[in-house]
Design a protein around this nucleic acid. Structure first.
Lengths: 109, 109
DNA sequence: TCTATATATTCAAATATATTGATGCTTCAC
DNA sequence: GTGAAGCATCAATATATTTGAATATATAGA
């Protein structure tokens, strides 16, 4: 493990961690990872007001986590890099283990 | 990629994403991943007030991201599960590519 | 027990974030 | 050009987070 600098941590935080730090945005990442989806579709899926979805999509877009492509009046969002969800999936597995007691608790018994 | 449920996303957020959503906490995770470290040491390394470090450590501890062991008057913190940093390292590599223009921008040219 | 050291907690202030109704902008069909 | 659809931005509010000074708690040694 290469030591990390404070500047690198700040970039990591600004470009990724901040982006995935909201449940709605996590859901958005999973949804657009399946296939490109437009805002209307994502608004229905998330069950929040449309401006809320646009707000979260903007945060993801500004950080480069998702790409957007206009098609007529719709704008389709997609995941920009598979590593983003790859990392999240590792954390997801970790949490799943946590919930079934296989991580951190049992390992210390 | 197995579809994720809203409940699973909430757990993922509460137990991990929220925990790594602050630069100071990211630094803490890297520091305690190297070796167990006590609060005094971490306070010097982070260059913030001791209560601030305790606060961040509590957030990490409550989520199970770090373990703590008392030794005399000191309390040593360590990383609870290697997968946490494994995932972060993937994101770190992604950000490094972003910064050198190898990710997301170039791939779309 | 008294004192010093190490860590945690409380509390308040400052800052940041999430949410949504109202509104503006863009695109397309007619 | 007009109207409608889709999305973004604005403005206002509510909520959450970060921070550190002051204080409390816990351990060890004398």
């Amino acid at each position: 493990m290469t030591p990390i600098s404070e500047e690198e941590v700040l970039l990591l935080h600004r470009y990724v961690c901040e982006g995935i730090a909201d449940p709605k945005r996590l859901m958005l990442l999973y949804y657009v990872a399946e296939r490109p989806r437009n805002v209307s579709e994502l608004t229905e899926l998330l069950d929040v007001a449309q401006p809320t979805v646009s707000h979260h999509l903007r945060i993801l877009r500004e950080r480069g986590l998702v790409d957007s492509v206009r098609d007529g009046t719709s704008i389709f969002y997609s995941l920009s890099d598979p590593r983003i969800l790859q990392a999240i999936e590792i954390l997801r597995a970790y949490v799943a283990d946590l919930m079934t007691g296989r991580a951190s608790v049992v390992n210390k018994a």
